[in-house]
Design a protein around this nucleic acid. Structure first.
Ligand SMILES: [Mg+2]
Length: 264
DNA sequence: GCGACAG
DNA sequence: ATCTTGTCGC
């Protein structure tokens, strides 16, 4: 092997080893944060019903977060937080931040790329004691539906100490679950709710697939993020699905892309 | 070795 | 994630 080849090979070895040791750190972080995860309802509000019961706080402010990326420079991203009024389904708060990302997208490690800017937006709103601070946050990315049961929605939920729900637009294959199998089962299942629990080969329930709008056959994938049960997560997501993607996430996605277009 | 791989 | 316009249909 000549010197040039040897040099490039050792650079690449170094780079690979660095990546892999960073991933080992990340595995430990995920494992550690997972110890704080709560997968049952843990909030003081309740879902809106048609009865009006006076004393209890009702869920009204639902947040959504997403990132968009520059087509020219893939390290430039815009993170956006929106809050919707559940009654009107209108955006009552919007904030975004354009940042340079230094961490690549790696399946299973999305949170290390996307969570920091989103946590900053949440923190800024909380520190201002904003009256629309969300009672629940919907995240564009999975929660428990993740190779180690700790996706972006769990990560944000634990670090912000906020109830979160994960919503994926594509299935991250885990525990024998595949996109095609799930679609077939969802079609075959005679569920009037258009919902299918995602039960893996191990028997574990990772979340649920749901055909969320009349307009599309392609399901969305709902999973528990933090401080909420799967049943509650499904009920709330369903309330916000005017289109396939739940409105808080859809608005964060749209406004994030708009902001990047008008500001870079 | 092969296929899979949230955003 | 992004590259990309129109087109068909309710
Ligand atoms: Mg996204």
């Amino acid at each position: 092997m000549n010197d040039a080849k040897e040099a490039s090979s050792s650079i690449s070895n170094f780079s690979n080893e660095f990546q892999s040791s960073q991933q080992m750190d990340w595995l430990r972080v995920q494992d550690s944060l997972k110890g704080k995860l709560i997968t049952e309802d843990d909030f003081k509000w309740r879902l809106p019903t048609r009865e009006k019961e006076g004393s209890c706080e009702i869920l009204k402010y639902v947040g959504g977060v997403d990132l968009s990326f520059s087509k020219d420079d893939s390290s430039i991203a815009c993170g956006t937080l929106v809050v919707l009024d559940l009654t009107t389904q209108k955006v009552v708060y919007e904030d975004s931040s354009i940042v340079r990302l230094h961490i690549p997208y790696l399946p299973g490690f999305l949170a290390f790329r996307e969570a920091p800017v989103l946590l900053e937006l949440l923190d800024k709103m909380k520190n201002n004691a904003h009256c629309f601070y969300p009672q629940l946050l919907m995240v564009d990315g999975n929660g428990l539906l993740h190779p180690r049961g700790f996706g972006l929605a769990c990560h944000i939920g634990v670090l912000a100490d906020l109830p979160t729900v994960g919503v994926g637009k594509n299935l991250h294959h885990v525990d024998g679950l595949t996109q095609s199998t799930v679609r077939e089962l969802l079609q075959a299942a005679d569920s009037p709710e258009h919902i299918l629990p995602l039960i893996g080969d191990s028997g574990c329930i990772w979340g649920a697939a749901m055909r969320s709008s009349e307009g599309s056959l392609k399901p969305i994938f709902i999973s528990v993020g933090h401080r909420i049960s799967l049943a509650s997560a499904i009920a709330i997501v369903r309330m916000t699905c005017k289109f396939r993607v739940p409105e808080p996430i859809r608005q964060a996605d749209i406004r994030s892309r708009e902001r990047l277009r008008n500001n870079q």
